[in-house]
Each structure stands twice: as C-alpha cells, then as structure tokens.
Simulated scan of single mutants.
Amino acid sequence: MDRNALLASGAVGVVVIALAAAIVVPGVLADPTDEGPVRPGPVDVADVSIAAGPATGETATLEIETRIDHRRNPTQNVSVLVRAVDAESGLLTTTKQVDVGTISRDGEKTVSTNLTVPREGGYDIEVILYRNAERVDEARKSVRGVSAIKPPYLQSTTSFTDSEALPPVSFSIADAGEDQTTLDLSATLANTGDDPAEDLSVMFVLRQAESNIVASRTTVDAGAIRAGRTETVSATTTVPNDYNYYIDAVLLRDGVVIDTARGAANLNPTRTISVNQTTEEVELRVEDFENGGDGGAPDEREYAATETESAAPGFGAVVALVALLASALIARRRSQ
C-alpha cells in the first residue's frame, strides 16, 4: 500500500474515533470558551446600624441591621455572626448567627439581627461576615446607656417640670404652731405628649435632712393632664418644728414610678440645707417624730466617780508580827 494512502487512512481513523468518543462521552473535548470554575464575587460589611427594640424590666432588645455590599459573580454560603460584648467587663453576653445564603445581585443586601441583652450598662457590638465558613470582613459599633430603653409600663410623656421659674416641688406654710408646722405642698407636672395622661398620682415624702427619718408621707390623685398642658398637684402635711426637711415627690402611674423630684424645706432658721447637700449637723430629738405616746427620752444622770480607801489603826506590820509570835507560843504549850 502506498505510504501516503496509509497515512491518510490513519488520519481519517483518528478523526472518526475522536468524533465517536465526543458523541458517546460528552465533555471529552474541552470547550474553548470555558474559563474554569467561577470565582465568587467579593462581599464586605458596608454599614452597621443599631436601634432600640422592645424592653422588659430586666432585658432590652437591640435591633442590628447589617448592610452587605456585593459585586460581580454570585457568592454562595454567606453568613453573618453578631456578638454583644459587655463594655465594662469584656465578657461575651450573647451571640447570634444568620445564614444569608447566596447573593447574586450587585449592590447592598440588608441582614437584620435581634440581640437580647440585660438592660444595664453598655455593649460593644461585633459583626463578622463569613463566606464558605471563612471570615472575610468585620465591623464593630458601641452602644451605651441601655438602661434608658424603658419597658412600656415605664414610658410616659408626663414628668415633673425642670425650671427655676416653675420648680418641680415647692411649699408654703399654712399654719405655724408651737410644736408643729402645717405645710402646703405643690408639685408641677407637664405632659409633653400628644395624648392625655391619666391614672397619675403623686406621693410626697418628707424626710428629716440629717437623720433621713420619714416625718410625713401622703399621696394625692393627679387626675388627667391634657396634651401639652402643665398642671399643679397639691397636698397638705404637718411636721415637727425646728427641723429641715427634704421633700421627695414621686410620680406614679398604676403603682409604677415614672419620675421623681426633690425640694427642701428649711424650718430651722439657724441652719439651712440645699437639695444636693447638708452643711451642718444638728441635735435630733427622736420623740418629735414618734407616732403617739409621750415620747419621753430616757433619764440621763451623771454620777461622780468615788474612790474608797482602807487603813488599819495601830502599828500596822509590827502588831501583826507580835500576834504571829503569840500564836506560835500558845500552840507549842498545847502540844506539850
């Protein structure tokens, strides 16, 4: 056979075999347009925002919104880990992980996470972004004063006023007796909300400044305060004379304390106190604050110290020696 014909037959055979293999086994021949495995697009933390959520007496919920920026190819197995670390102790308080899945669109994707923490102190919020269980980015933000997030029963638009022209607590003397003084007490409340405030009451507590003894306690109904209005609540009480008092006013709604204020009543003309401090100690007669009874104080007497001395008349030691010798002689005669 001609050599050229043999080579041509071999070439044709190779082509036939290749075509047959391509038909029987797809994918044997590489696609010239195939660029290999698709690399996932880049993702990172664009921003983190924190909002106050629901609260109870003990806990507060932090609503954390993480914005993830994504570009180019789809990215699979994306997840976000959020942690709350106590700002003072550095201890981990709580953690939560959210599976985002696959991100295919270019732009930002929002991931929401709620963390429940104790309603006290402050926290460092750490947000860690993972792709295929590999950390790719992270961000941190801090939140302070979590105790200011109040549960619904503590939320109120009504509070005591805070003005020198319109003080939250004031008093006037209604009657000055020989031993006791009657005071007219006033508390000024303002409703800064859009709705009327109802079921309010004010408790007035008068404490003797130096001893903190409660001299009087009275509660009055504050009624309803219209939106945007300021109202004054009044009460009358009687306390012993010649003492200085702190006037504590407590605003309550359905038995829950929602605000407090303090004033001072100086009924001792020789000594004065301010709301923030006392400047001098005074003599306190506890019987003035007793409820009923004569309140008589125990009788205090001073006794003079006395010194007793003893002395034997005569010669002292010489007489004692003579007596001893005489006793010895008498005993000797009896023995004979």
Rank of each mutant, 00 (worst) to 15 (best):
V14E: 00
V25N: 12
G27N: 11
P32T: 07
D34S: 09
G41Y: 02
V45H: 01
A46E: 03
G53I: 10
P54C: 00
P54D: 12
T56R: 10
T59W: 05
T59C: 08
T61V: 14
E63N: 14
I64K: 08
T66F: 01
R72D: 06
R72S: 12
N73S: 15
N77L: 10
S79L: 07
V80W: 01
R83C: 04
D86K: 07
L92I: 02
T95W: 03
K96N: 07
V98W: 00
D99E: 03
T102V: 12
S104H: 03
K109A: 01
V117P: 08
R119C: 03
G121S: 03
G122V: 06
D124L: 14
E126V: 13
Y130D: 02
N132M: 09
E134C: 03
K141C: 00
V143C: 11
G145W: 11
V146M: 07
V146H: 08
V146L: 15
S147A: 15
S147H: 13
Q155S: 12
S159Q: 06
S159F: 05
T161C: 08
E164R: 14
P167Q: 04
L185P: 05
G193A: 00
D194L: 15
A197M: 04
E198Y: 07
F204Y: 05
A209K: 03
E210T: 10
V214E: 14
A215V: 04
R217D: 02
R217N: 13
T219C: 09
A222P: 11
A224Q: 15
T230F: 04
Y245E: 01
I247M: 09
A249P: 13
V256D: 00
V257F: 01
A265C: 10
P269C: 09
T270V: 02
T272S: 09
L284C: 00
E287V: 04
D288H: 10
P298V: 06
E302N: 09
A305M: 09
A311N: 06
A312V: 13
F315V: 10
G316I: 01
V319G: 15
A320N: 06
L324I: 12
A326D: 03
S327D: 02
A331F: 12
R332Y: 11
R332V: 15
R333T: 14
